[in-house]
Simulated scan of single mutants.
Amino acid sequence: MTGPEMTEERPHVVRHARGKRPDFYETPGLDHVMSMIMVLASEVATMRDRLDSAERVAKASGLDLAAGIEALELDQAALEEREERRQDLLRRLYYLQLKDADEAAKAHTSEGFNATIAEIALQD
Rank of each mutant, 00 (worst) to 15 (best):
R18E: 12
P4M: 00
D75C: 13
M34Q: 03
K106C: 00
R92W: 02
V14H: 06
T27M: 15
L89V: 06
L65Y: 00
Y94G: 09
L79M: 09
L90S: 02
T7N: 07
E80I: 05
R48V: 07
T46P: 00
A71P: 02
P22S: 07
M36P: 06
L90M: 08
H32Y: 05
H12A: 11
R86N: 08
G3E: 14
H16I: 06
K99A: 07
L65Q: 00
R86A: 09
R56Y: 02
H12Q: 14
M38G: 04
V33N: 04
L90H: 04
K99N: 07
V39E: 13
E9P: 01
K59G: 08
M36V: 11
L51F: 14
R18M: 08
D100I: 00
H16D: 04
A107D: 05
D102Q: 12
M47L: 12
I37N: 08
T7C: 03
E84H: 12
R85A: 15
L90Q: 06
P4C: 00
V33P: 01
R15P: 02
A101I: 00
F24G: 08
K59L: 12
E81W: 11
A58W: 04
D52V: 03
S61I: 07
E103D: 06
K59N: 07
R10F: 14
L72S: 11
T7Q: 10
F24K: 05
D64R: 07
R91D: 10
L93G: 12
E8N: 14
R18P: 01
H32I: 11
G19V: 09
L98C: 00
A45N: 13
D102K: 04
K106G: 01
D75K: 10
L93W: 15
R15Y: 13
E55A: 06
R21V: 07
P4V: 04
M34S: 02
G3A: 15
L63Q: 06
A78C: 07
L89C: 02
